[in-house]
Design a protein around this nucleic acid. Structure first.
Lengths: 332, 332
DNA sequence: CTGTTAGCGCGTTCAC
DNA sequence: GTGAACGCGCTAACAG
């Protein structure tokens, strides 16, 4: 494999000039640049990432810190990040926190090593306070998608707005017996934050309509747990006529339960979810959409700009959710 | 941040000795090694990955080449890979091929650069012949999970066995009107290979039972497309009494269609899927399990061993599938 | 605008 | 078993 010295020799210039011509930094005469570029192409020259990294202190890689990536939201987000990173000529290094404490500890220990990555993207609401402060002490810039930490640029879906959007949709259809089914409290406190905000949005919308919010039903945020809980909820004689589920996965569990009980959706029961999960259309589910792929692209673009010219921006930006009406909701 | 010179000085030895003591290569007196280790710990020394990489030619990273990672199989596989890589102190660099041709081209172009990664794991059946040969010319060792390429160590689910397992289960329950619903041919030829094998397994089992296999119904391998197709299939007067779906996602579409037509599962219709998808239990779906997480761990472990001592092994290993019986299948 | 020189932080000969 | 010197491939600082 050709090295930069070969290119310089073939172009009849010094290593330094070749480097300048190749990287675009520093000024080089046009004719000289052309010769260098041609020589590089002829030799199929590729700079050694390790050498560049050692000389510049940059790695050309972005780290992504994610809790269990086998979920719709995180894996879709990752696609957006990977695509955007590639277009900026950056590698994506994946750190999966898993679902247990042991992995998390090992990942954070690994972070203390130097210069594996130029910047870190922490995704979804899974960092503890201790982890946030550990990240801060590493010295590489970090941004967060989700509940923002102090001193870190972050984006977050406006989860309270999610709750009011979904609830107001049901209210506008004339529903009054509306129940909110949420996720569990067993996961991280910071994940719980999103759930609490969605619940609060629901309660606010109910009260604004002069209605008493029903107690939120909590369980594991999976279709399976939701199915089991929804069965008993829907068997009750005073069952709700409308359900606002905190995620599409939960909503799917409710839909499956309703169907197996012979309830017709949306005639006997209206259901709204959150996410616009890949299956939401197949379930004909009305939902509040968020677009993780676009989130990923947005965060990478921002990071690349900030890497080039650090802005010191530590703002926390709310992402506006969008209601998608499908066939799972109908007038009361 | 402390460098190895600081460690050497504190321990009262030379850089060379410090390096030997830290890496474990070369012989160092026990007492000396202890002093170096203590000094390193005291200074919280971490070797610079870039410098190590430049000196040794190793990057300490594994590349993972994946088609669209927002699918259950790939994202779960990625978890297994990430966890295993972490335990071997390796980074995971993600290359998402996406669903279009443009991304693929850019990813493969990127591969031509040197030494981003020590080895490459290509996952699921998505490589074209041209891509396989491009990979081969890169010079970094590659292994494949899926349809094996010549000269590359590979693992693959025994897809024909998948088909016979599922079909024989339905046959053993007394079913005779069994239809196979498969994925589409619009994706890569190599993905199609798995589908064809599952179909062949179905046909073989049917013929072995003295039955005529029905023509396979093909459509996009999503729950949504499956739902639409299943509706018309199940409305037909001579509808099947049992369905073997090529994936759980397809099976879910069939189940949703059956329920919306008022058909009772498994009384009126038995359904078998493939994967043991995260939702399979919620759907109470009988399925042929594969364990992508375990596949990921297995492949990384093999790779690490082969990196340490290249075996030249280019064998192609079949992974045995396992039937999981749940409530979506019952006697005819 | 260009060439020379000096590192970046390690691993690794080769002497001793 | 240990130390001095060199090299990995590139970029940055300084002259010219």
């Amino acid at each position: 494999m050709a090295v930069i010295d070969d290119v310089a020799r073939l172009a009849g210039v010094s290593k330094a000039t070749a480097s300048r011509a190749l990287s675009g930094r520093g000024s080089v005469a046009d004719a000289t640049r052309q010769r260098v570029l041609q020589a590089a192409a002829a030799l199929d020259f590729r700079a050694s990432p390790a050498a560049v990294s050692l000389a510049t202190g940059r790695t050309g890689a972005l780290g992504v810190l994610a809790p269990a990536i086998d979920t719709w939201y995180v894996s879709t987000l990752l696609r957006g990040i990977a695509e955007a990173a590639l277009s900026h000529d950056l590698d994506v290094v994946l750190y999966d926190l898993g679902r247990g404490a042991e992995m998390r500890e090992r990942v954070f220990e690994r972070f203390r090593q130097r210069h594996h990555i130029d910047a870190l993207i922490s995704t979804t609401f899974a960092l503890t306070h201790r982890e946030v402060s550990r990240l801060a002490s590493i010295g590489i810039p970090a941004v967060a998608l989700g509940d923002g930490a102090a001193g870190v640029r972050s984006w977050c879906l406006d989860d309270e707005r999610v709750g009011t959007l979904a609830t107001e949709h049901l209210l506008s259809l004339g529903h009054r017996r509306i129940v909110h089914v949420g996720g569990s409290t067993v996961l991280d406190e910071s994940l719980f934050a999103a759930e609490r905000l969605r619940e609060r949005g629901y309660q606010r919308a109910m009260r604004a309509a002069g209605l008493q919010p029903a107690p939120t039903l909590l369980h594991d945020p999976t279709a399976e747990a939701s199915y089991a809980h929804a069965l008993s909820m829907l068997r009750s004689p005073d069952r709700p006529r409308a359900v606002f589920a905190a995620t599409d996965e939960i909503a799917m569990g409710v839909l499956l339960a309703a169907r197996s009980l012979g309830l017709r959706v949306p005639l006997d029961l209206s259901v709204v979810g959150v996410d616009d999960h890949a299956y939401a259309a197949a379930f004909d589910l009305t939902t509040v959409r968020q677009d993780p792929r676009e989130h990923g692209e947005r965060i990478v673009d921002w990071l690349v700009a900030d890497l080039a010219a650090p802005s010191g921006d530590t703002s926390h930006e709310l992402i506006e959710p969008e209601l998608v009406v499908r066939g799972s909701t109908a007038p009361a």
